[in-house]
Every structure is written in structure tokens, then in C-alpha cells.
Design a protein around this nucleic acid. Structure first.
Lengths: 214, 214
DNA sequence: GCAAATTAATGATTTATTCAAG
DNA sequence: CTTGAATAAATCATTAATTTGC
């Protein structure tokens, strides 16, 4: 806690004299704009200028700008990494003898949340998995056009390479459609439970109750 | 129990079988359950499994599941955002007569964002900021460039050695040759004249904003 | 009670970003 | 600088709720 926080609670209300910078909407907009302009690590000069400009909208210091860019960049990267991993899972674990580790492990199981009942704060798993730089060896799928009657353009394009979607004809003969058979959790009968309400724990994929089922 | 009629009334009638999926209560319940479990962007395999499971309750395709998660996630986020803003407005509805924006911007929302650094990820304001022709302060090649010295160490050393970030006490004498001069071809494609929603338009590095009081 | 008109939800499309690679 | 992949945001469009009048 830097005691040197002269927070100018602009306005008048009893703003909680926060010890840390509270960017205003305008400031964020501008910073994001700059980021989009390609700025990643602004030079000292740039930081100064940015700070000066942004100060018009509220208290701000150079370090705030500096940190903002650092954090923003880092987060974008993390996000990207996470997505990459997601991609890998999609691509490889087509044969998951063992799905996700039995415990809150990031490796392989990005679909678990630390806390259930979450409607807010889409936190990220923040996996520490290091993946090669080029996981995204895209199979180079031709970009086909979609006039206006696509069965899910996004979905289609998103999973095109995997042959998941057939959409049309309602005949999802997706390659190895080996799911409806039994897949997992065959022993339980929670699924059919949905006669009305009560949706307990729907574990489609892993027949394990995990290590911390609450 | 509402009679969840499937759209599968096809056969003899020319009934325009619903053009879009109409989920049953069971399906929705299960999807929500899965969402609560943390599933946000199911993999292709998961989609297939889910689809298969849910098909016993009515017609459904993979794309429906895919879309459902996309929409649900997006709308949950919207809700969350809205509530946050609402909360903020409630507590900071004062009108800060300070720092009147030099430019006619129409930012009338709240003045503060929660932005709790952690847990919250940068909500893309999508600020459509308009800028002049390519002012790329720096090409997207940060990997190769490491010009100034604001990086190596944390802000600490940075502001210590250069005093740029100091803000008040800092002395803008860094003069690090900002190689940002790599102003490449002006790609004015994305730049579009915004009407109404006009942002301060700040180009720090060219000279000064059009509406700068500097 | 039913049906047309209006409104609210929400499924489906399109568009705009991001980062990475060539 | 361009292309590719993959969302997420924004938007469009259609269905279900509901309101209203008979």
C-alpha cells in the first residue's frame, strides 16, 4: 500500500479513497484504443504523453499507464494461451481414456470451475500449461462462402475442421459419433431425472465425481 | 408441465416446421446445469455428447448446443455488467463538475468502473475510437523490439531510473528514441468517421489531439 | 375462451477483436 | 502486411408470453 495516494475523489461523494488507481471509463477507452493501435510497451515518452492526456479525466500517474499495458498484454496472452489449450483438447483428446485429472488440475480439464453456481465473474482457469508456440497449425480449410442459409455459420466454421457439425439433414453422423451409446456415467440415472426440475450435477463427460464435489 | 411440443410435426402438413430450435425445459435445465459446472465453450466432443443426451427430450443438434452456450455466456456477462454499472451508478451518481472533457464526447455513463484488477477481465468497451491515418506507435512485433528500458524490471526500476512514471516528480528527459516512427502505410480502411459517438481523438505521437488544450 | 397485436426472450448470423505465422 | 483461427460482441429474426378486445 503506497501511502502516497492522493486520491482526488473527483466528484464529491464519499468516494472510498482507494489505494489504487481507478480508471475511468474514458481512460479505459483510450487505453484500449491505444492498445489496439498497436502499442504494447509504450516508451517513457509515450507514457508521459498518455498520462497527461488521461489525467484530464481523473487522477492517474505514469505507473498506472505502465502497469495497465503490462497487465493488459499479459492478460491477453493468458487468455490466448488458455484458448490454445482448449483448442488442443478439442483436437487431440479424441480418445480420452482418462479425461481430466481427478483433481483440480489445469492440465486437460479446462472445464472445471473452482466454484459452482457462478453467474458472474468469468474467471479464467489460468492454466500454467506451456504449449508450444505453434499449436494452431491450422489445417488450412478453404473458406467457403455462406450465402444466407447456413446452419450455424459460426458453429460451422468453428468446428469445420473436425467434422462435428452436419447440421443439415438432422443426421449428425459425425464421424465417430460414439457418444450417444453410453459414453460416460452409464451407471447413474441422473440424466433422465429431468422429468421436471432438479438439475443436480450433470456430468456427461467424466464419470468421476471429481475430488471436491460439493 | 407445459406441453413441450416438438417441432417434428413434419410429414404431411406443409407446416413451416419451426425454423429454429425450441428447447424443452429438460434441455434447458440440463444445459444450465452444465453451465454451472463451468462449461462455457464445450469442445466438439462435448457438444456431441451433450447433444446426444439431450436428444432424448426432443430434436436438437450440435449447433444448437453450441449456440446456446455462446448466447448464454454472453448474456450472463451482459447481465453482470449491467448490474455492476447499476451498482456503481447508485453509489456514484454524483456529477463531478471536475475535468470537463475538452471535447464533445458523449460519455454519460458512470464515472467509475469496478475493475478490481483481479477476477475481472477487461471488458471491452469497444470504443470505436477514431484516429487519423495509421499512427501505429509500434508495430505488433514486440518480440523483436525492446527499445526503452521501462520493461526489464518492474515499474520500480523503471520509474526510478527514468522518472517518467513518477508523474509529478518525474522529469521527461528520457528522450529514448522512440522507434515508433515506423509509420507504415496509412491504412485508413478501418478508420471511419464516427458520427455522434465521437471520442477525443488523441494521437499522442503525432502532435496533439484536435481538441487538446495543451 | 380465442385470436390479433404487442412486447419480451432468445436462437441464429454477422461483424470485429485478438494473437500468431508466413 | 496479409492471412488464418477462434471467439465474443452486436445484431438480426423468430418464437413465446402477454395484453387487449370480442
Amino acid at each position: 500500500m503506497e501511502g502516497d495516494n492522493n486520491v482526488v475523489m473527483d466528484g464529491a461523494s464519499e468516494a472510498p479513497v482507494s489505494s489504487r488507481w481507478n480508471p475511468t471509463k474514458e481512460q479505459i477507452s483510450m487505453l484500449e484504443s491505444l492498445y489496439r493501435q498497436g502499442i504494447r510497451t509504450p516508451s517513457a515518452e509515450q507514457i508521459q504523453q498518455i498520462t497527461s492526456r488521461l489525467r484530464v479525466y481523473g487522477h492517474i500517474e505514469g505507473k498506472n499507464v505502465f502497469y495497465w499495458f503490462q497487465n493488459h498484454k499479459a492478460r491477453q496472452r493468458q487468455k490466448q494461451k488458455q484458448e490454445s489449450m482448449d483448442y488442443i483438447n478439442r483436437y487431440f483428446h479424441t480418445t480420452p481414456p482418462l479425461f481430466p485429472p481427478p483433481c483440480p488440475n489445469v492440465l486437460g480439464g479446462p472445464y472445471y470451475l473452482p466454484h459452482n453456481d457462478v453467474g458472474f465473474y468469468p474467471q479464467y482457469q489460468h492454466s500454467k500449461v506451456l504449449l508450444p508456440s505453434g499449436i494452431r497449425g491450422r489445417p488450412r480449410t478453404e473458406k467457403l462462402e455462406k450465402p444466407r442459409a447456413l446452419d450455424g455459420a459460426a458453429y460451422n466454421s468453428a468446428h469445420q475442421g473436425y467434422g462435428i457439425l452436419q447440421g443439415k439433414t438432422g443426421k449428425p453422423s459425425i464421424g465417430s459419433s460414439a457418444e450417444n451409446s453410453t459414453t460416460t456415467t452409464p451407471s447413474s440415472s441422473e440424466i433422465e431425472e429431468g422429468s421436471g426440475n432438479y438439475q443436480p450435477f450433470f456430468d456427461f463427460f467424466s464419470g468421476q465425481g471429481s475430488c471436491e464435489s460439493d
